[in-house]
């Protein structure tokens, strides 16, 4: 079963459109959702959560329509935005009391364990917490009702590497249960390399690719050479090219290229740059 399935999603604003967005997140996997700022990641996520109304298209979460079954779906998801959107005069203990009235499955014990693990002060007002602390609190809030799906919209942006690593470990622990899934939007591609099973790349409101991370990293290669050398590559093997430091760099399908060509292993960042800035 797919935890998330999106078919043909369209949403338009003045000067920006989401066009034909289609991808799915199989249950038990982590989908990295990458793209530059303004590419449409947050808009897609907001459409999924019905914070924005889609123009047309189909969005299924756990196989159910996201509007028709909105409340039952929202019982099973945890959402983390790039900031904690709760009134700043509240503190973590008050949030526990509030959330225990919102979710039937709210687990105060688990919530306070996470706060202790992250050293988040229980009685300090949110406005007095650092950005890192706010994000940790936000993640504890998203996890404490034991959701099946986490939807994370840039949860690690603006955080230092130590905190990011701690947070990624927590997500990996969440994935120990094979019925759990994560949609992780980020432009910090190194985070996704650590945690994602699949990568979906969005650019200018369109999906450029949606594939398994291993397929991307092991089936694609980067060839660096001058224009003549690049011309020797089989045409059908070249996915994208871009100007490099010493000539031209080409993203190629490894298995279509003779072993005589020395290929480098790409990172997700390389692939993103080839697809966004390279030419066909």
């Amino acid at each position: 079963m797919n935890a998330i399935e999106i078919h043909d999603l369209h949403k338009g604003f003045e000067g920006f459109f989401l066009k034909n967005i289609s991808f799915s997140v199989p249950q038990g996997t982590v989908m990295g959702f990458v793209g530059e700022n303004g590419a449409g990641k947050s808009t897609t996520i907001k459409c999924m959560l019905n914070l924005l109304k889609k123009e047309y298209g189909e969005i299924l979460l756990f196989g159910k329509d996201h509007v028709e079954h909105e409340l039952s779906i929202k019982n099973d998801i945890g959402v983390v935005f790039d900031d904690l959107h709760v009134p700043e005069t509240l503190n973590a203990t008050q949030l526990d009391k509030i959330m225990s009235k919102v979710f039937q499955t709210w687990d105060s014990g688990y919530y306070f364990e996470r706060l202790a693990q992250f050293k988040v002060p229980k009685r300090k007002k949110i406005k007095e917490l650092s950005r890192g602390m706010r994000m940790k609190l936000s993640i504890a809030l998203a996890l404490a009702h034991h959701p099946k799906l986490l939807i994370l919209d840039e949860p690690t942006s603006g955080l230092d590497p130590i905190i990011r690593d701690e947070i990624l470990d927590l997500f990996l622990a969440f994935m120990q249960d094979e019925t759990h899934s994560i949609l992780f939007s980020s432009h910090i591609t190194s985070d996704l390399e650590k945690i994602a099973d699949y990568i979906t790349l969005i650019h200018n409101g369109e999906i450029l690719l949606s594939e398994s991370k291993d397929a991307l990293l092991y089936e694609y290669g980067i060839f660096k050479g001058n224009s003549e050398e690049v011309n020797d590559l089989p045409k059908h093997a070249i996915l994208r090219t871009r100007p490099g430091t010493f000539g031209i760099e080409a993203l190629v399908l490894k298995k279509e290229v003779n072993e005589a060509f020395r290929l480098e292993r790409p990172s997700i960042e390389d692939i993103m740059l080839f697809f966004v800035k390279g030419s066909v």
Partner: peptide
């Protein structure tokens, strides 16, 4: 006003509340 300042509605609408 506090809700507006903290963008609470964006968060509240991700919770199982109509």
């Amino acid at each position: 006003s506090y809700d507006e300042q903290s963008k609470w509605d964006k968060y509240a609408n991700t919770l199982p509340i109509s």
